[in-house]
């Protein structure tokens, strides 16, 4: 891989990182609106409000950057970056097509899970440094949620890794066969649910429950820093979609249109998962804290262990 090639890949990555979350955000605007019998944004950009999020970005950039008087300035300022960067790293590791990842690592799946867990520190930092009790509560909830859902997430991912016999993401896609859809179905569902919980997306949005704690850890943020947190949320959806695609939906594979256009399938599947995430948000009510913990420990962890067992048995027999 020459330097030029690497540079090109990095630029592409950055473009994806900045554009895809906006696309998901726009889909959310529109899909959610239509699911509620509304139209959503219609003006910005002319055609069905396609430039709404660009306009929002401009608005955010113009806003004052408020630093609460009692806040811890350094931690407060650093937090958004720490929340956003892990997703950039993860996106770099996603193989979009055969041999088309920006960076490839032998233990890709492990690396991805490790890096994704770091993002939470950004939220916890934000919550603590804001000098606001609602922020601290939000941060606590986010941390508690992450600690409980990390386990099923890792176990579900381990099941696929076991099935494929490799920890590398492209390796998993190579080994993937259509019937895995059935074999790894519980794993896929667990991964998606736990991933949603890690992103604090509805129905697991206790950490930002606006009726109780305003906007959780992000309450005190304004302007660009707040925009970074929002970007992190949508980048998280993209990453979750891409990871689900790579691990459970066969990545770039499809009965037809393989060859050079495989990345298109990755994109389509990723957006489909993102749509599912949005759909869940519109349809389901928020889980209470105790329900949330019960779901993780009483359902997802045992189910993930059962899935692991099934995978093991099939691997050994087959």
């Amino acid at each position: 891989m020459s330097v030029l090639d690497l540079l090109l890949r990095l630029v592409l990555l950055l473009a994806c990182f900045l554009v895809l979350p906006l696309v998901v955000g726009q889909i959310e605007h529109k899909a959610m609106a239509h699911m509620q019998s509304r139209l959503g944004p219609m003006y910005a950009g002319g055609f069905h409000g396609w430039a709404q999020l660009v306009a929002d970005g401009v608005k955010f950039a113009q806003k004052e950057d408020v630093l609460p008087a009692a806040a811890d300035p350094w931690v407060f300022r650093l937090a958004p970056a720490l929340a956003l960067l892990p997703y950039l790293v993860v996106l770099a590791l996603i193989p979009v097509g055969a041999g088309q990842a920006v960076v490839s690592a032998d233990v890709g799946i492990f690396l991805v899970l490790a890096v994704m867990g770091i993002g939470i520190i950004g939220t916890v930092m934000a919550g603590w440094a804001s000098a606001n009790k609602f922020s601290v509560l939000g941060a606590l909830r986010a941390a508690a949620q992450l600690l409980s859902y990390e386990l099923p997430l890792v176990l579900a991912a381990a099941s696929v890794a076991m099935a494929a016999g490799t920890l590398s993401l492209p390796g998993i896609v190579e080994a993937w066969r259509p019937w895995w859809l059935l074999w790894q179905l519980p794993g896929a569902l667990i991964f998606l649910v736990a991933g949603l919980a890690e992103l604090s997306r509805s129905p697991f949005d206790m950490p930002v429950a606006e009726s109780e704690i305003i906007f959780g850890a992000y309450t005190e943020y304004a302007g660009l820093r707040f925009a970074l947190f929002l970007l992190a949320e949508y980048a998280g959806i993209v990453v979750l979609g891409a990871l689900t695609t790579v691990l459970f939906l066969g990545g770039w594979k499809w009965p037809f249109l393989v060859g050079g256009l495989g990345w298109l399938w990755t994109l389509v599947k990723t957006l489909a998962v993102a749509f599912l995430v949005i759909w869940l948000r519109v349809s389901l009510p928020r889980l209470r804290e105790d329900q949330l913990q019960r779901l993780a420990w009483a359902w997802l962890v045992p189910l993930a262990l059962v899935q692991l067992m099934i995978t093991g048995v099939v691997r050994v027999m087959g």
């Binding site: 009692a70 806040a71 811890d72 233990v107 492990f110 690396l111 899970l113 490790a114 890096v115 867990g117 770091i118 939470i120 520190i121 916890v124 919550g127 603590w128 440094a129 000098a131 601290v136 941060a139 606590l140 941390a143 508690a144 992450l146 600690l147 990390e150 890792v154």
Partner: peptide, 29 residues
């Protein structure tokens, strides 16, 4: 492998647990 385990377990879980416990008890700015 060890490096990423370090990140996953120590940075991702232990420190978060630590921060969690700190905030649950007392962590003044």
């Amino acid at each position: 492998f060890v490096a990423w385990v370090q990140v996953l377990v120590y940075v991702g879980a232990v420190v978060v647990l630590l921060l969690f416990a700190l905030m649950l008890t007392k962590a003044p700015i």
